[in-house]
Write a protein that binds this DNA or RNA. Structure first.
Ligand SMILES: [Mn+2]
Ligand SMILES: [Mn+2]
Ligand SMILES: [Zn+2]
Ligand SMILES: [Zn+2]
Lengths: 146, 146
DNA sequence: GATTTATTGATACTCAGTATCAATAAGCAT
DNA sequence: ATGCTTATTGATACTGAGTATCAATAAATC
């Protein structure tokens, strides 16, 4: 679902621009994360990676996930059963919806959240530098197929 | 900071009403979570508990944390370095602010969030049943002491 | 192509969280 | 109060996600 919005080239360029060497594992893992319909854990990504590159190391995947997260290309999903799954980051879209029925992630317009944050900043006095809004429920298609 | 709003009696009553037996560990742990100035992990709570009850078992603390979370008395903080810390749940106050400087948690008025959720529900078509908004930044007192 | 060095992958390790189970003690009945 | 039943505890062993290590590999630059 997010896949159509992600440009694999951009991710490779971002890694390149950050001074990292271009390797085969990078392309494999970027492809996996960019095209998954579901949030993926490093462990899951490892298993997927080994289907096309059987000797892929576990630590390598964890290292790559860390890189991608640090570069802001993927972001952690804070769900009920832990926070070890990742989805691609869509620029300007901070609000994440997770369907409790099918597990898929959807990105919602985050302008209302921006407004809320400024509002809360003014009323609380705290300086807010970052936010994570996680929404849970039943997605439109799961409502239809119910 | 949240401590002044938490009534230990209420928590004990909630556990009692749920059919759990009243034990000494319960009181100890409830006291620890209800009066901590900072989000606490089960591990941290265990260490604190052992100061007053040295033979407190580790598993016991994890089981109690699970109970308290299931009853909605404490809630998980989804922070940068994992989501294994807990704060007391304040009724009707869902928005959580964590100061990156001093680590303290603050609760913000959640009415704006309620509005945002209904708005997003209408525009996305998803049925939203739950939400977690986590705000990060620098609290008012840390801004003064800077 | 040779050199340099970041990256990889196999292995061993850590440690938060969990399963097990005998010992304990809360709740209830007498 | 006393004993009975059974939930809860705590010691121990275990699990498994995540990490440290390090020799082997392969980008990058010349
Ligand atoms: Mn989390
Ligand atoms: Mn602002
Ligand atoms: Zn769905
Ligand atoms: Zn602070």
């Amino acid at each position: 679902m997010p896949s159509k919005c992600i440009n694999v080239e951009d991710w490779l360029n971002a890694l390149d621009a950050s001074g990292f060497r271009m390797t085969a594992v990078q392309e494999t893992l970027i492809d996996i994360f960019a095209h998954s319909d579901f949030p993926l854990s490093a462990e899951q990504a490892w298993h997927v990676a080994r289907q096309s590159r059987p000797k892929t190391g576990r630590a390598t995947v964890y290292r790559m996930v860390e890189k991608l997260e640090n570069l802001g290309l993927i972001r952690r999903v804070h769900g009920y059963q832990g926070c070890s799954h990742f989805v691609p980051t869509l620029p300007e879209l901070m609000m994440l919806f997770i369907c409790q029925s099918c597990g898929r992630a959807d990105y919602l317009d985050s302008q209302p959240l921006q407004d809320l944050i400024h509002q809360s900043e003014d009323s609380s006095g705290h300086h807010i530098t970052d936010s994570r809004l996680q929404l849970f429920g039943v997605c439109t298609s799961c409502q239809e197929n119910a």
